[in-house]
């Protein structure tokens, strides 16, 4: 069975990039919870996942100075959150929701991390041939 290192981690190495970006966005929302006129931002995880599933054509980076498509794509996926209850000062952060989303995102991140960790362990065992 040929081992292909490009596919060894499945979607999880790409997913980590997305979770990282989301961690940043959600922490921005929490830090700006009391800032007038701040509009909460987030990435729709399911939409990105769906698109990744449908994308059959992938761009390859063959040079170090190429920018990976995945990293750029997430910037375009950043959207303003829909307002449930508007505040008088124009702020749209719902702290409770942001905290819940942050916790969920951290869990997903750790899940992907654990899976990648296990894959690495599996590969190591395969190399040793014990």
């Amino acid at each position: 069975m040929p081992v292909n290192f490009n596919n060894a981690f499945g979607i999880h190495d790409d997913a980590l990039l997305l979770f990282e970006r989301r961690t940043q966005l959600l922490s921005e929302n929490i830090a700006n919870a009391d800032t007038p006129n701040y509009k909460a931002r987030d990435i729709d995880f399911n939409a990105v996942l769906q698109r990744a599933k449908n994308d059959s054509v992938k761009m390859r980076t063959t040079n170090k100075s190429h920018i990976s498509l995945a990293q750029q794509a997430y910037s375009n996926d950043v959207q303003y959150r829909e307002v449930q209850q508007s505040a008088a000062d124009g702020n749209t952060v719902d702290t409770q929701k942001e905290k819940a989303a942050f916790a969920e995102n951290a869990m997903r991140y750790q899940l992907s991390m654990n899976i990648m960790s296990r894959k690495i362990k599996g590969l190591k065992t395969a190399f040793r041939g014990e």
Binding site: I30, A31, A33, T95, K99, F102, A106, M113, S117
Partner: peptide, 28 residues
């Protein structure tokens, strides 16, 4: 009370991210 809650939220974010980063460094 509102200011101290917001401060706590930021601390929680920091400690969660610290944990995540440390785990990432120990991957594999």
């Amino acid at each position: 009370i509102s200011a101290s809650r917001s401060y706590q939220n930021n601390i929680e974010v920091l400690s969660t991210v610290k944990e995540m980063t440390l785990r990432t460094l120990q991957m594999g």
